[in-house]
Design a protein around this nucleic acid. Structure first.
Length: 699
DNA sequence: GTTAGTTTCTT
DNA sequence: AGAAACTAA
């Protein structure tokens, strides 16, 4: 807490003034320069989607006005290299300290570590804090001090930690502004002209910004929370918390949320309110999953990229861009799946249950590479969150030790009657099926011709027949699994013979690149709303594209496509056409918002379903990551199980891009993780094979 | 109470 | 698919 110069408080995904430890530290230390650096190129392939950028824009302006009312302002910088920008800011302001809150995705860990190194070398005191989690990932481990590998154990431990999560901090009363006269803000561009119309609709349903988040939190806790458990199974119930986008950008503090929910928990427990208690536990569990997603990302940085269970890398995914397209456009022939995909397309929002349905269908029935689906979610979801989505897709894909069985296929027809028993959800999003009786709504292909005729449906033209039958999918999956095990056995044999080093790195089994000719972010014209627009046929100001989307029929969808191909350049996700590097450290120096001439000739080759382990070999990582103990941090504690924690200057185990391998410290030994896993009894073959040390490097 | 059959849930 | 939690006699 040296006196003298001012502090830079670097905002990222902690866009709030309440319970913001970095900001609090800055305020305590004296004068503050609050900064946000927009450097999307640093995110590699994960340039935020349109709705996500819209949210960010609103949230930042909200934060800026809050800071202004407290005595300073938010300095906004456009950059392709956050660390350089920080250095410039240090020079321009004479700051002697830098404070920020932790992030846990691999890119941030590396960048933030570099920021610490570079700025410390310049004589700047750098301190970082936990603002995003109840407990830091390195605080939660089993009796042997190793990270958990199953959620249930992890969460049980979190709920019985010897010390409570930090109590939330109040917002500062006043902020003394550092001298920002020499660092003018850049104008940040978060949307282009073509996106403005669609974005205008978002504001009807959502209010970004930390104080709105706080209101949403209070509303939820005092209202729908008690029925959370009751209502969770309905596809379009308006009783989810709707906090996820707020949480993604750190507008609301999980710790505050946790404390408030805990108060209700105690209250309802005393009242013997069974439903309330169950609801609380369920809701907390979803908070736990969010925690766990960061935990996994931190402990297994490659899990955004590659299956956590090593043998899954041998699965022969179906690389079929037509399947992918049909899924995105809601034309799979399975009403519940299609309704979900149309809702996502139109609104950027999807109930959790439906996310499971559509992603499970994607992986198990279509057998498309899960990362494609994950990328599409990233591009389209309003609450897109890399760590959470990676965890979700890995769970669905059966690539987690405690995920779903890989060979399990859910039948969308049955799920339809489970989550949407009266077909209301399907009818809302698939107007072409609106007149179909409930009896057939989730399996129109079985309906008698007369019924279809009466409903105005002609399967195959009006609404598609299932693009893949469930039985065919099951057979296909079995076949694929046996191929997978063969490859796996061959690989294991090669390793045991010592003839093979790094098979997992060989391009043959590298992750499958994204389709080259696919526009990852479709033309989405959203009207996201807890209650999806009822009057969607005549929304004022809606573009024609919007109507095409909202009154979907095969013809209008096809027409919309044709237009796409022929019309002008539209915005697309910057790097979406490229491959997804495991971690892209090559900064794109283009300062303009990524803009891509989207349309290329359709690739005829794409029209064949190809079983492949990997087409398009991709470049290898040119570096590896390692985690060391936090030796360089003066505040480091060697044992994370001790109950004392530093509120200030939290300790982050050091990330080093140059370390040659994953540190043993964070990887179970050969048998360690597997032995306790519930996965093994179900998949005894994998008992010997899963080499967890390798897994962390390659799998 | 007991037991066999049924539904629900799984991160 | 399998366990756990429910129901119906």
């Amino acid at each position: 807490m040296s006196g003298g110069g001012c502090s830079i408080v670097w905002f990222r995904r902690d866009l709030r003034v309440e319970d913001n430890p970095a900001l609090a530290a800055g305020v305590r230390a004296g004068s503050v320069v609050a900064v946000f650096i927009w450097a999307p190129e640093e995110e590699g392939p994960y340039y935020p989607g349109r709705v996500s950028r819209w949210w960010l824009k609103q949230s930042l302006s909200h934060l800026d006005s809050s800071l202004r009312s407290l005595g300073t302002a938010l300095v906004a910088k456009r950059s392709t290299d956050s660390v350089s920008s920080l250095l410039e800011l240090v020079k321009a302001t004479g700051a002697t300290q830098l404070f920020f809150n932790h992030l846990y995705d691999p890119l941030s860990l590396i960048r933030d570590h570099r920021a610490k190194e570079v700025l410390t070398a310049q004589g700047v005191t750098v301190r970082s804090f936990n603002a995003d989690l109840l407990y830091e990932p390195w605080e939660v481990s089993d009796e042997q001090g190793r990270p958990f590998t199953t959620f249930a154990d992890f969460w049980e431990r979190c709920l019985s930690m010897p010390f409570d999560p930090e109590a939330p901090l109040l917002p500062p009363k006043r902020i003394i502004s550092g001298d920002i006269s020499r660092c003018p803000s850049d104008t940040l561009v978060f949307e282009d002209e073509s996106e403005k119309g669609s974005n205008a609709l978002l504001a009807r349903a959502w209010s970004p910004g930390w104080s709105n988040a706080d209101k949403a939190l209070t509303t939820f806790i005092n209202g729908p929370l008690i029925e959370y458990s009751e209502n969770r199974r309905k596809a379009d119930s308006a009783t989810t918390s709707f906090l996820s986008p707020h949480l993604h950008f750190g507008e609301v503090s999980v710790r505050k949320l946790f404390h408030l929910v805990r108060i209700k928990q105690v209250l309802w427990a005393n009242e013997g309110n069974k439903a309330g208690e169950e609801s609380v536990n369920l809701f907390l569990k979803s908070i736990g999953l969010r925690e766990y997603s960061r935990y996994m990302s931190f402990n297994h940085p490659y899990s955004l990229e590659r299956p956590l269970l090593g043998h899954l890398k041998f699965f022969p995914w179906v690389v079929d861009e037509n399947y992918f397209k049909a899924w995105r456009q809601g034309r799979t022939g399975y009403p519940l799946v299609d309704a979900g995909m149309r809702e996502l397309w139109a609104t950027g929002w999807l109930h959790d249950r439906i996310r499971v349905v559509v992603s499970s269908f994607f992986v198990k029935v279509l057998q498309l590479p899960w990362r494609w689906g994950m990328k599409y979610f990233w591009d389209t979801l309003l609450d897109a969150d890399l760590e959470s989505d990676a965890l979700g897709w890995q769970y669905i894909s059966g690539t987690l030790p405690d995920g779903r069985e890989f060979d399990r296929i859910d039948n969308p027809q049955f799920e339809g009657y489970k989550f949407d028993p009266n077909g209301e959800y399907v009818r809302r999003w698939l107007p072409e099926l609106a007149r179909l009786p409930t009896e057939w709504i989730h399996h129109p292909w079985n309906a008698p011709e007369s019924v279809l005729q009466a409903a105005g449906i002609e399967l195959g033209s009006n609404y598609p027949l299932p693009i893949v039958g469930i039985d065919a999918a099951k057979a296909h999956l079995q076949e694929a699994l046996s191929i997978m095990w063969q490859h796996e056995a061959a690989s294991r044999a090669a390793i045991e013979n010592g003839t093979e080093e790094g098979l997992g790195d060989s391009s043959e089994f590298a992750p499958i690149a994204f389709p080259q000719d696919v526009q990852m972010e479709e033309e989405i014209a959203p009207a996201p709303s807890p209650e999806p627009a009822r009057n969607h046929n005549h929304l004022p100001g809606s573009t024609r594209r919007y109507e095409d989307q909202m009154v979907p029929s095969i013809t209008s969808l096809v027409r919309a496509e044709d237009e796409e191909t022929s019309s002008d350049v539209r915005n697309s996700v910057g790097d979406s056409r490229g491959e997804v590097p495991a971690t892209n450290m090559n900064v794109n120096m283009d300062h303009d918002p990524p803009r891509t001439d989207v349309m290329e000739a359709n690739n005829p080759g794409a029209f064949q379903a190809v079983r492949t382990n990997a087409n398009n070999p991709r470049p290898h990582n040119n570096f590896t990551m390692g985690i060391h103990s936090a030796a360089e941090d003066s505040t480091a504690e060697s044992s994370s199980t001790t109950s004392r924690r530093e509120r200030d200057g939290g300790v982050v185990p050091v990330w080093s891009p140059s370390a040659s391998a994953y540190s043993d410290q964070f990887v179970g030994d050969e048998n360690g993780i597997g032995a306790s896993s519930s996965y093994l009894p179900r998949h005894p073959q994998s008992h010997q094979i899963v080499n967890w040390r390798r897994l962390s490097q390659t799998g």
